[in-house]
Structure formats: structure tokens, C-alpha cells
Simulated scan of single mutants.
Amino acid sequence: MPFAVAPDDVALYYEVHGGGERTLVLLAGQANTHHWWDSVRPDFDTFRTITMDWRGTGRSDKPDNDSYSTRGFAADVVTILDHAGAGMADVYGTSMGGRVAQWLAADHPERVGGLVLGCTSPGAPHGIERSEAVRRSLAQRDAAAARRALLELMYSPTWLTTHSGPYGTTGDPDMPEHARRRHLAASASHDSWAVLPSITAPTLVVHGTEDVFNPVANAPLLAGRIPGARLELISGARHAYFEEYRAVASPLVVGFLTAQPPTEVVG
């Protein structure tokens, strides 16, 4: 099992799949593991894909300290790229992973080829926050009701009737409470607005039109702030557009990335 060790001695678990010469890093949402990508990862097997467990989740270490931030997570991705021997990679980040990807592209431009930002946000104070009604639905004391609310934010009711799970997008069930709190704080404190114009990687912004978990209004904000970014909205999709609408989303992402000049070849 491959582990990379960050400068603060935190062990970071990651997996490598696919046989392509180009490396593609797939970044999951808040409080989730590499399993976020399980159902769609094979769609990217023309790449050498890297998926990871954020610090605090899965098989990675779970320190109880102030090392959790979206910018810090980006540094963790660089640690994994170094360990995997990838000088440069294409990057596809969704939800909190998209927030991390923004920092990765801004702070480490030499490591990012093509950039895809899915169902994500520039963060407060410039981004559009979810409504109070959505927040209340997720904070219900009835755990079953709160889980159902989360599922309905991720997927359409029609899709849920034909897909009974398990779901890889609803959080790491074994995550300790301290790490869960720190992930929430890291995502909530994200603010990349000032650095977005410095991103030089060719960028695609993707969002579902029915996403209220991370409101779709964030997509044009990002696309308008990043030079030359392309915006694509997927009609009818909610937060987990990449899974429910994979027949649209995966070819869109692959087509965008492969149209870009090749990134550095591994080895």
C-alpha cells in the first residue's frame, strides 16, 4: 500500500490505477476518502490516475491539530505527486477537492497541467453559500433523516430509487470526530478569491444546474475569475453530477484534458 509522508510526518494513503502516460489526480470532497471516485474512476483509465485519502480520513493519519486547511491539503497533494514520481499532473477536484485544486494550481503552477473544478466554490466572502434551509436539513437530530437529506442533495430522487448504495460520497463513516470538525472548518474557511486570477493552467469549471449543496451560482464566479476558464453546466444534475451524470461528465472532462498539451511523462 503506497503511503507518502508529509513534512509534518503525517502519512498519506494513495492509490494509482490506469495505464496512461499522463497522470490525473482525482480529489474528493470534504470528509471523504478515495472511495469518492470508485464508481467513475475507470472512466479515466486512459490516464495514470491517483486517488488519495485526505489527512483525517481513510488510511491516512488523523492528527488532532491545526494542520487542516484547503491550502495545506494542496501541499499534501504535492507530497503524493513527489512520492509517485509525477512532476506534473492534470488535476480534477470536486467539492472541497475543487477548493484544494484551486490552491494547488495557484501555489504550484509547475505541477498542474489541465485543471477541472467540479461543484466547487471560491469560498467566503465572495462565494455563494448554501441556504439556511439546507444547513438545517443536514443538522437534524434524527441521523436517518439527516442522511436522507444529504443523499437528496447529492442525487436526484429518481436516481436514488434505482441506486440503493453503498454510496462513496457521503463521508468516511470511520472518521474520528476531531478530524470531521477540522475538515468542516478547513472547507468553511476557504478563500481563494485573491489568487484565482493568477491560475495559468487551462481550466474547466463544471457544475450541476440543480446543485444547492454548493450553489450553482459559484460556477460562473470561478469561471469569470480564472483567466480563459471554460464553463459547462450539466442540466438537472445535483452535487454528485460526476456519478449520476457520468455519461455526460466523464467524457466532458476527458475530452477537455486530452485537448490540452501533454503534461510531463512519468519516469
Rank of each mutant, 00 (worst) to 15 (best):
T169Q: 12
A217C: 03
Y241D: 01
S189H: 13
T169Y: 03
T169E: 14
P220M: 07
L222P: 15
V248G: 03
L196F: 14
H178K: 03
S235G: 11
S192C: 04
H190Q: 06
D172L: 06
M175N: 09
V206H: 10
H183T: 02
M175L: 06
N218I: 00
T209Q: 10
S192A: 15
S192W: 11
P176N: 04
L221I: 12
N214C: 11
T209P: 13
S164C: 04
E210A: 14
N214V: 04
A240H: 07
P227G: 09
A219N: 07
A219W: 13
Y245C: 11
E243N: 14
P220A: 02
D191V: 01
L204Q: 15
H183F: 08
P197S: 12
R230S: 01
E244N: 01
S192R: 15
T162D: 04
T169G: 02
T169P: 07
H163R: 10
L184V: 13
A240I: 03
V195T: 04
S235F: 06
L184Y: 08
R225M: 10
A186S: 12
T162K: 15
H207A: 11
V205N: 02
A219Y: 08
A237M: 11
L184G: 12
G224C: 06
A240T: 04
V195N: 05
